[in-house]
Every structure is written in structure tokens, then in C-alpha cells.
Amino acid sequence: MINIVDYEGGNLFSVVKAFEYLGEQPQIITSPEAYQTGKIVIPGVGDFGDAMGELNARHFTQFIHEKAAEGVEILGICVGAQILFQGSEESPGIAGLSFFKESVRYFAPGGKIPHMGWNTLKIKRQNPLVVDVDDGGYVYFAHSYFIPAAMADYELAHCEHNNLFTAIINRDNIYGVQFHPEKSQKVGMQIMKNFIEL
């Protein structure tokens, strides 16, 4: 069972439909009480601070920590991945879920910001989430803040735009993808399928 956290985070529908396309019947949970069993997906479009505010207001923060401690696999997408971190330059003073110690940062100058469009994954470490994902495969990004590629032990794939940044991160049962797998055709579907099969 895949549970998708609904916290008014935007592009929920496409995530739901992509899991359905892969044969799942995902459950949309608007409160922790709606959860029964299975994996948890935190989608996300928008602002780090707003995302945390909405999660807190719906009592999801404590719930996600409890499930993480129980070993439930959790996947954050885009801002949903960023809030797995301690904080972000986007929303100073707002605490994230803090599964990872680093802080999310604004892109270095150079190419256009937001980093918008299809870019290549450089696979750094083998892991069930990236099985059958080609090194150099294209995925769709849309973000202005990035996860620093400074945590070699946790980085499954990185990408480059103005600076190197982490595209896929994993620590134990916690996973995050900076891009939108639900909008990334073959490569994205493979990663979502891999998450289902974890």
C-alpha cells in the first residue's frame, strides 16, 4: 500500500495517477488517523516553510517521525525531499523534518534559476531505488533551492546546474528525490516502480 500525504502541497493528482499507472491503488491521507499500513509518499510543490507549516498544522510531523522509526519506507518528492532536511535558505528559522543534518540552499549564479527542465542523473551508489535507472538518464526538475551534494554516504545520484547538487538521497528507510518522477517518463516510472517494490 502506498499512502500519499495530502497537505495542500499542489501536484498531488499526478503523483496519485502515476502510482495508479504502475498498478497501485494509492491512499490519499489528509490526517495521520487515515493511515493504516504501507509506505508513505510526501509530494510537494511550493515553499519549504509553507510545506512544514501545513504538515505541522495537520499533525503529520510527529506521525512521519514515528513511522520512520518503525522502519516504514518514506519517499519525499521535490519540496517533499527538501523538508527531510534540517532547514532551508528559503525559509530561515523554520525547522524541517531533520532526517538529514544539512540545510537546503539557493543555487549559485550562472544558468537560469529556477532550474527548470530535463537534466541528467549521475548515479553515485547502487541501491534498490535506482535499479534499472541508467546513468545519464533524464528526469524533470523545477526548483530554485538544492540539496547540497556534500553527503557522499547518503547520495544515490547527483545532478549539476550552476553547482553540483543531490538528486536522489537515501538513509535507511528514508528516500528523497529532487525531481518529479511522476513527470519524468520512463526513468521516473522506473524509480516509482522501484519504490513500490522496496
Binding site: G10, V45, G46, D47, D50, V79, P114, M116, A142, H143, S144
Partner: peptide, 8 residues
């Protein structure tokens, strides 16, 4: 932009 992010 505030509600959904500039990228939207």
C-alpha cells in the same frame, strides 16, 4: 509564487 513557488 508565494502559494505554489515561482517554478509554477
Amino acid at each position: 509564487a508565494k502559494a505554489f513557488g515561482s517554478q509554477c
